[in-house]
Structures are given as structure tokens and as C-alpha cells.
Design a protein around this nucleic acid. Sequence first.
DNA 1: TATGTTTTTTAGCTTGGGCTAAAAATAGAA
DNA 2: TTCTATTTTTAGCCCAAGCTAAAAAACATA
Lengths: 242, 242
Amino acid sequence: MIGGPASLIFSSMTNLSLTQPPSSSVGDYLKAIWEISGSEPASTSDVAARLLISSASVTNKFGRLQEMGLARYERYRGASLTRRGRREALRLVRRHRLIETFLLEHLGYSWQDVHEEAERLEHAVSDEFTERLAELLGHPERDPHGDPIPAADGTLAPERSSPLSEAGIGQRVRIVKVDDESAPFLNYLGERGLVPGRVVRVEEVRALDGVVALEDEYGEKHHLGESLACRIFVQKELKKRT
Amino acid sequence: MIGGPASLIFSSMTNLSLTQPPSSSVGDYLKAIWEISGSEPASTSDVAARLLISSASVTNKFGRLQEMGLARYERYRGASLTRRGRREALRLVRRHRLIETFLLEHLGYSWQDVHEEAERLEHAVSDEFTERLAELLGHPERDPHGDPIPAADGTLAPERSSPLSEAGIGQRVRIVKVDDESAPFLNYLGERGLVPGRVVRVEEVRALDGVVALEDEYGEKHHLGESLACRIFVQKELKKRT
DNA sequence: TATGTTTTTTAGCTTGGGCTAAAAATAGAA
DNA sequence: TTCTATTTTTAGCCCAAGCTAAAAAACATA
């Protein structure tokens, strides 16, 4: 197989704007800003905390990102991504999530180790590698955490899920995302089959202590504390079964 | 599969000496010295040529490699690897060759693209990744070029192959290695099935122009010019078939 | 042996990505 | 509104890994 479907995709779209790939450091900043900034720009100190570096270094880089046309930056108010910056960030997120999927599904990695390895690899792989990997994995739409995988052109469908802790009583919901990286958390849920894709019925959301009671597809009951329930994201499930 | 056989291997052996991994630049120097130096140390300019950098930079780094205990260096005479340097180099070579194998066999890469991608990835992957990949690939002893893959502990069995151009007439030999990276070369041989593992009989080695005549297992004849024949490495084949 | 060529080294500069400490701006509380 | 606490920025430094240009050593050959 030489220059199969994968090459069609990546040759036609990525890196339209950046003549040379951003350094891995630049990429880390873009991802951090993307993850932190919502309606507000990402603050210097938040980015510093996430990347475990000093605020001074972040201030510095914000300036450079602006010059590079990857971010908008206003002194004392933080940085937000330009369209190009966002696309670059999403390219990395795509890589990260595809690599995580590969590590878990094909190399037998444990949840604990997956993130760190992907963090390094995402800066080393080419677009070609990424698209071939996507093909090998069957073009998944979500990674094993349930996070959506951005498209090859750096776009990401807006997410419409809400925390389990806010679900309505009696509702049938599908788990779409588990928003935590810690191993005990993931292991606990994994053992009980509460993983992305599963459909459960919400039996009770107790106002008193936030405990959520669930029944899964096999009739098993689960009782989750508030701290767990607010990290499990769900969508309303319409049909009986997909 | 959590912490399977792979983790047994790598947790017990690698990085005995280096507390933190050598920078990717250091690794490139070690590999270059390993590839270049035989009985003689590797010269400044040879390493510079291979890494496409200036000789001055190489001189500089040779000093640092010595301080780090990875190379022996004598001014104006070049550098050679210490035991530790050699082990580090071979760890990288192992990674490189396993990654190349994966790219070709599982991701459908073409010969052209494999080397460059592996060159980047080998600096990003962990020992854990490497050993799990080895497992996925079935612990191959050679990569698709026929080059031997060093063991996880950084050792490499000495190679006993010689160029096809030096084979004896009438000898049955097994192709073990193709020592060239160029695409046309590899494609030509690939189309004719002259790939590592194949057994052929040498019919003639013409002194006049160095052309080697072969007969393969299907009775097909091949005539290779000297420039090709000296890059195909073979071993004497004893049994009729393996 | 003397002399010129090639190779290697030295000296000094550049860039990217960090750092700390001190100054400036912003935000919160009295 | 003013004053203090926090955050952000500035200024100046360090290190790794390159570079060029010039000096020094090694080599080759007349």
C-alpha cells in the first residue's frame, strides 16, 4: 500500500499556513490556551500552572505567539487563539487522541501511562503518520476517554454533553466522556463498565449529598458520589439502543 | 493487558547509567559515531557530513560527549563510543528499526517515507513503547531492510554477512540485508522479490564488469550490476530451505 | 625538508526556551 | 477612594545547539 487514502487527505489540507511546523513548545502553549480559554482569554498564570513553567516565560511566549499570528494577546488580559492558532492546537489534539487510542487498543497500555506517552509522541509524528493511524483505528470519532477527536482539517464539532450530576431523574443517557486522568478513577469506572458509549438510566440525583443512582443495561445498580458524577458527561439517549 | 511481559523486560534493564535521557541531539551524534567508526574513531568531518551540520559544532559536541562518559575523544583524531555510549546508540537503533518495521507492516508506509518518520519518532518514544511495539511485531530479529535489531539491553550479535559481489560461484546464499535507502533501488529489488530472507544461487560473478548473475527459487534469472551487488549482503545458505 | 592544502579547533555570535528578582499594573477590601 | 495584595511584565541572566571566520594542527607532496 503506497500513498493510499491517507495521503489524499493530508496532502490536501494540513499546514496550509505554517511553512515550518511550530516547535513542540509552541504547540504546548497553543493546546494550553485552547484548553483553558473559554469566552475569556487564558491568563498568564493559568497557562504557567498548566505547563509547569514560570509566568514570566509565558508572558514572553504570548508575545511571540501574537507575532506568529497564532494568538491574540493584550497585556495584562491574557491570550486567546486566532483561527490559525486554534487549528494548530486542534491538529495536536487530534494527534494526541488518536495516539492514546492506539496505545490503549493496540499496545495494551494502561490508562496511567497513556497520557504521558502521547504527550511526547504528538510532537514527533507527521501528518502522514497521523492519518495512517486514523485509518488503522477505523477513523474513530472519540478517544477511549470519550473525548471527541478533531477532524484532519482542524475542526471540531461543538460538544453537547452535560455532567451526569445534572441529569434528569428517569432519563436514559449515554456516557460520552470521562473528564479525569487519574488512574483509580478510571479503573473504578472501567471495572463497572461505566465507560463511554454505555447507556444508563438515572434513578435518583439526591439533593442532599449529590449521590447519583444509576441502573445500567444489565440491571446493575451503581451509586456515584458527587465528585465522580460531575466528571462523567452524558447525552440524552433517544432510541432504545444504537 | 496491563503491565504485561513488556514491562518486565524494560523495567529491569534499560537506562542503568543515564539518569535522564540524552537529548535527541546527543543521540544523533552517538548513532552517527556508531555507524561511522569501525576500528578507527569517527572523524569530525564525517560526523558533520552525516548530520548535515558544521564541523565546528561537532568538535564542540565531541567534548561534551567525553564529559558525559559516552565517547572517547582525542583532539584531531576523532571520537569513538564508550561502552555506555554504544549501549545508548544501540537503544536508538533498536527503536529506529522496530519503528520502521511497524510503519511498513502496520501503517502501509512506503520505503521512501519510513526512514524520516522513524528518525523523528525514535527520540520521542519511551522504553515501554519500544518493548510493547516489539511484542506487537512478534519480536523480530531483523527490520524489513534485513538489518539486525539490537536487543533491549543494548547488545547486538556481530553480523556475518558479505556483499553479494563477493559471493562464490554456484553458492546458495540468503539475502540478509539491503544496504541502501534510495527508493528506486529498493523498489527495483522489491519488484523482483530480491528482499531479505530470499535464497538465491549465484551463477556468475563477472570479473570484467562486476555483473552478478542469480537464479532465484522460482528459476528466474537476475543480472545485477556491481553497484547494486555490493549493497546486497548475503549469508551462505546451508540447508535446502528454512 | 619545506611548503601548501586540508582538516580541526578556537573564538565569538545567534536563537529558542527557560529562569529569578524587581518593577508596574490590576483588583479587592477598608 | 485609597491602600494593600496579587498578578503580570520587564530586565537581565543561563544553557544547549547551532553558526561563521580565523587560527592551528596534520597531512601530502615537490
